[in-house]
């Protein structure tokens, strides 16, 4: 458990549809991007994040859903963010190589 970077806050919370996750060593970079994508899920009622204290390197992300479990919503969000950044990377690299080959012609 010591080395885990993702844990659930308030383990006593029984309902699978509402959970607060704690990301250790993350901040607004992941928090805001993830929150935006999870909110795009129509099954999600609430998603928000906070950094409870500026000198603690921790991110709290809360998800509340209608039907699916909060963990599934989180997984979906992470998968989407990963595929998003992979696609941005791909598009960027094509754009750069196109730009450079055009420059060579000139």
């Amino acid at each position: 458990m010591e080395n885990r970077r993702l844990v659930v806050a308030r383990e006593d919370e029984q309902d699978d549809r509402m959970k607060t996750f704690i990301f250790k060593g993350e901040g607004h970079t992941l928090g805001n991007a993830l929150r935006t994508l999870i909110l795009k899920n129509p099954d999600v009622i609430f998603c928000g994040y906070t950094i409870p204290h500026p000198s603690e390197n921790k991110l709290h992300l809360r998800i509340e859903t209608k039907e699916m479990s909060a963990v599934d919503a989180l997984r979906e969000g992470l998968e989407q963010l990963q595929s998003l950044s992979d696609h941005v990377l791909e598009t960027f690299e094509t754009a750069v190589s196109d730009f450079k080959s055009k420059q060579m012609e000139v």
Partner: peptide
Amino acid sequence: LFVEAAKILSQKCRVFLDELKSGL
């Protein structure tokens, strides 16, 4: 640098997806 940034964002997601896979 931008390519590296995109890789790092992807990597951040992978780390937590792996943790989810091994159960919470």
